[in-house]
Design a protein around this nucleic acid. Structure first.
Lengths: 252, 252
DNA sequence: CTCGTTTTGTGCGATACCGCACAGACAGGA
DNA sequence: TCCTGTCTGTGCGGTATCGCACAAAACGAG
């Protein structure tokens, strides 16, 4: 069961969980914009200008080290929101957010968002709950980095990515995956080769197609299931309200 | 500059940052209790009964895997609070909390705490800000697990532990450190041997003494400095109020 | 179609860490 | 005091990953 809903993916599930009136107040300030692969939404240390709610895009939260090496600590799709440090009290994020899968998302100015955050208790509950899921996701990354093989982590990464999109084809180079997982590119090449030999995926220059999701699930580590369950429980808690399909708003 | 204050350590710095009236409401419900090395405050999946504010004790937040292997994702001393998932909306924590350094701490029933959390905006701000620091700490664990050597991580662990206590002697076995870092015991033995040869630490069966903090700082990775800075900025934001030395209350 | 650039494949030695086995050293209780 | 269980030291082969170097293949622009 994929995290992505079966019917229509052009909305953000956190926004969709808002009640009618709460959504009405945010709606006029939401801007639908295109998020291009590789574009940086914010850098560690920036002063945040916007809060993003991805719809079809996926972003990656990364820590960049002094020597330039990077590690993804979490990723955010249409189940989440970017700039969470704003709600925990700091307009200066500790990580970088970079678009990992191109697509669309809504953005809203921090001022408007913060005001509504303080006004609406439900919005607070929703966002705090999302932060909880994020903490779990980051914790699992820590565990996974310690204990699991590159192949297992690649499976997890592939699965959690296709779960957030409709297509089972990813537009991404092995080099990029490597930099997100914080490993060598050759390590990804080898692991991907194994998965290809097993018939679970296929790929060509800059594209990966998942052929057998269940196969990948047999190879990946427990972290994948735990993370999926965490987000599942988050989202099932807030029944989707009727306006899910009417997130149309000022388009940029 | 250690995180622990120079004068007196028998209070919790988050509690100390509360204004007079906010603290007065919590005070009567705070119970000072002893936290023994190795005791488990909560397990992943438990229903939380208490919120803890360590004073001299230090707790470790761990993820336990199916095969029993564990990884510490963060640790909490007198700069923090345990059971944070309560504030983000779930009375069921995702991790285990175990006492890593014996000592004292305050506990308070979740009901009282939640009520005050919703009443006091400052308390909310404070706790959310702490959650922010926690996220940074967990993220750094993820980065560290990926990129840094056991020796570097051991240095970081030793430093962040003595920074939270007055003494520079730790009561802990190498076996325990290994299980927290998620590595082999022999790996710790070897790294500790190197640090001893370098004259930075000394140790005997179950005890480690830090002799040269600056020496350890030269060996550890950047994660240590980043984490320290994060907590420093958190705590400097909330000036200690006058009641810091009067956290006396119903003693168990 | 060709050329140049980007992406992927492969080989190799070096290294860090693991898993296991067991020896030695210490500490606290009988 | 000795004894016993716990903790630490050490050796050794196995493995995953790294770092580097370069070859081969794929794609896109001209």
């Amino acid at each position: 069961m994929p995290i992505a809903p079966s019917g229509g993916v052009s909305y953000n599930r956190l926004l969709a969980a808002l009640p009618e009136d709460g959504f009405k107040r945010l709606g006029p300030h939401l801007e639908l914009i295109q998020l291009q692969l590789g574009s940086i939404l914010y850098e560690s240390g920036d002063h945040l200008q916007y809060v993003w709610f991805p719809t079809t895009a996926i972003a990656s939260l990364q820590y960049i080290m002094e020597d330039g090496a990077s590690t993804e600590v979490a990723s955010v799709g249409n189940e989440g929101v970017l700039s969470v440090s704003l709600f925990t009290g700091s307009a200066v994020p500790p990580s970088r957010a970079i678009v990992q899968t191109g697509g669309y998302g809504y953005r809203i100015k921090v001022g408007v968002m913060l005001e509504e955050f303080h006004r609406s208790e439900l919005l607070q509950r929703l966002l705090l709950h999302y932060i909880q899921s994020l903490i779990v996701q980051i914790s699992l990354t820590a565990v996974c980095n310690r204990h699991h093989s590159i192949e297992q982590q690649l499976c997890r990464w592939l699965l959690s990515t296709i779960n957030r999109q409709l297509s089972n084809e990813l537009v991404v180079t092995q080099e990029l995956i490597a930099s997100m997982l914080g490993v060598r590119r050759e390590g990804i090449t080898e692991a991907a080769g194994n998965l290809k030999d097993a018939g679970f995926i296929n790929y060509r220059r800059g594209h990966i197609t998942v052929l057998d999701r269940a196969g990948l699930e047999t190879l990946t580590c427990e972290c994948y299931q735990v993370a999926k369950k965490e987000f599942g429980s988050l989202l099932s808690m807030y029944a989707t309200t009727g306006h899910a399909h009417s997130q149309a708003c000022s388009k940029k």
